[in-house]
Design a protein around this nucleic acid. Structure first.
Lengths: 138, 138
DNA sequence: TTCTTGACTTAGACTCTGTCTATTGTAGGA
DNA sequence: TCCTACAATAGACAGAGTCTAAGTCAAGAA
């Protein structure tokens, strides 16, 4: 946790109370939170923190590679602090719940150069969509 | 093209001018359009068509399986008429451009039951992210 | 310690996608 | 041709995210 803060400081981040709180919220629980949820939890500790700051900080964490953004199709993006271990996502189409999965294998390797059309491919996202046990039961 | 209209009619669709135009716009170019682009092109032929109608029609085409929705992470969804041949997408992180790719192999098969956590998995989306040749050149 | 400065934060207006509603129009069967 | 249920319309609304202008403050310099 504080190594995250150390890493950030090492990269020239100014360590403000707001950034600290956002980083702590993400690291606290291994749940995939929306920006709004991050804001709510951060505001519980630092009531005057603004939405814009949360968005900025999340964006910076994402571009530093410390956090992953998970698109959930229509709903709000969710943020996944578990960025260092490669993994994919299982997303419930009804409620938006997300679980990390670790199937192994490198999906990037499956894409032959001939199929890349000149794109510089830097990431692969594999998203399994379906219903979570609760929604399937419904 | 008109087999699409025939298929739709066969499924009990009422064939209105608006639906016809939306279906034609999607089938015309094999480009992945946003709902707004579809609306703009449809309006060029049928000026009074409303945004709501375009959204409704796209939603219906998607739920009939005639068209795929492609999430592009923050940006507007894009619609892919090429729904009958399984394929994946290459998405430019800067400009949002999309290309279809056909790597072959069944990504769903790569996910062992033990990793499904009780989810009923019905689809896999594989999205390769990177920069398209134009944006990479920039 | 105090000063300085540019990076950060703030509130809230704004934009963009997409949905909903109440009303009006019309495809297609009788 | 007439009817009626299904479809289309305008435009208000909602949610997520971005932008801006003004104020604040972390951290290095003196």
């Amino acid at each position: 946790m504080s190594d995250l803060l150390e890493r950030l400081r090492g990269r020239g981040w100014r360590l403000t109370a707001q950034r600290r709180v956002v980083a702590e919220v993400l690291n606290g629980d291994h749940v995939h939170l929306t920006a709004d949820e991050v804001h709510a939890r951060a505001a519980a500790r630092l009531p005057e923190i603004s939405r814009a700051t949360v968005y900025n900080t999340l964006g910076e964490l994402v571009s530093l590679g410390e956090v992953l953004e998970v698109a959930t199709d229509g709903r709000a993006k969710r943020y996944d602090p578990n960025a260092h271990r490669p993994h994919q996502h299982l997303v419930c189409s009804r409620c938006g719940a997300i679980r990390d999965v670790h199937p192994g294998g490198d999906p990037l390797a499956d894409l032959p150069t001939a199929e890349r059309f000149g794109f510089t491919v830097s990431a692969v996202e594999v998203t399994y969509r379906g219903l979570c046990p609760d929604c399937a039961r419904n």
